[in-house]
Write a protein that binds this DNA or RNA. Structure first.
Lengths: 257, 257
DNA sequence: GTGGCTAATG
DNA sequence: CATTAGCCAC
């Protein structure tokens, strides 16, 4: 099984990029974040016409998640389900055979110490509860993927000391993230690619950020023990980020036995 | 000599289209309207690097004219010169050898009877004065080209009766336009292509307008008697309008002995 | 429909 | 730098 995640920064703007990537890589599941489109404007037919199944939930201008799958899924839901549906455009959950895949777009947090930052911290807490209430880490095959807006170690940022403390690289956020992983997630990406300098996001505002290594690893592939054991490789499609008309993030792929 | 006119609807958006067209057609002069760019943002280098000379005057968001020439010109000026420079982004005047070429982007007029409509009518009056003060129609080789925002005869609109009275096809505007041509301009386009249904502009908002013949002839090539006598052919590049990423107008070309 | 503008977000 | 929205013009 091959699973991928991509913060596409507008699914409409990135439609050709995504369809091309799907055609070349033919994954079982592609998880998208920041689709930035309301459901009635989602380019559903473009995916259906290319032979994919697509499940999505979005809102105007911000957020939005989608799952593109080769086979229809047995289960799909959106949101943390502890609210009135406000989180629907940040969490998509599908079941493919024995595997649950939870795709999240964790709030970015706006500014350290801001209300949105508090909301981000809470979001990790709510997400931990989401997992504890639904799964048993020693029993279930669970993948947590997506744009988690956290670079959890110094190896995950181009210059940890320089950026610290940052929205995605500060103690509070790392602790909040760790509180989720402590439930029972392992970093599948790091199992296969332990060296530093492997990034998944480069700010548009930094020119030649990719060439100069000015990136962040904030898009993740995490899994329970059984998923981690079953994983055989991970990869970042850096080339795609170098194309013009690309998202500021790129595709991260994981393969499983 | 080959001269062309093109309302490019943003020279920045249309840069590739224009450079490609220049490379293929290699005209002596290409007159552009609606460049929609301030001078400090005009893509001058792109034309210079391709071996062209370029003279331009624009403003923010609206209007803007440019002359692209194979050889440097002996004279260039902008505007009607009866104002504080407000008309500079609607009139470019160059001299190439014995020939004066005046490229205008006549005000569209917004709405029948509006202040902008009155401004349009005035503009033709001011333009007649521009010609009378500078040229002698029986002596001088003068070309008047550009987007004149007038379809002067029923043959110049897809359905004259249906659209009448329209900003670009009503008695007042036709009379104002005729007052200029009466000074001494002949319709060089019509000398070579007398049949109706030859259009240079198709509204973006009408789907398949070109295929359905829903166009207008509002981009013109007019000349004094000597220019008209020297003219050998005219052509509209309809194909260019059918490409995606095209302007709503297309290129009109005239060849001279 | 397709431009460009401003403003906000990231 | 690159999205979105809402505005305006043609």
């Amino acid at each position: 099984m091959q699973v991928a995640t991509f913060n596409c920064n507008s699914v409409r703007r990135r439609l050709d990029v995504i369809l091309h990537w799907l055609a070349v890589h033919n994954p079982d599941v592609l998880a998208l974040q920041e689709t930035k489109v309301q459901d009635h404007d989602f380019p559903e037919d473009a995916f259906l016409d290319a032979g994919w199944n697509v499940y999505f939930r979005g809102q105007k201008a911000y957020n939005g998640v989608a799952m593109i799958t080769r086979d229809p899924v047995e289960y799909v839901s959106f949101g943390l389900q502890d609210d009135d549906g406000e989180s629907a455009s940040r969490l998509a959950h599908v079941t493919c055979g024995e595997t649950a895949i939870v795709n999240t777009y964790v709030p970015q947090g706006s500014e350290l110490g801001s209300p949105k930052f508090a909301f981000k911290l809470e979001w990790f807490t709510r997400l931990r509860r989401y997992f504890t209430e639904r799964f048993e880490p020693t029993r279930d095959r669970v993948l947590w993927i997506g744009d988690l807006n956290v670079a959890p170690t110094p190896a995950d940022v181009y210059d940890s000391q320089k950026v610290w403390p940052h929205l995605c690289h500060c103690q509070e956020v790392i602790d909040a993230f760790r509180a989720v992983t402590d439930w029972g997630f392992h970093d599948i990406f790091r199992k296969h690619l332990p060296e530093s300098g492997r990034f998944t996001f480069w700010d548009y505002r930094l020119r030649n950020a990719v060439e100069n290594g000015l990136g962040w690893r904030i898009d993740h592939v995490l899994g329970t023990q059984s998923m981690t054991d079953a994983s055989v490789s991970c990869d970042i499609d850096v080339e795609s980020r170098l194309q013009k008309g690309s998202s500021d993030h790129t595709f991260v792929t994981a393969s499983f036995r």
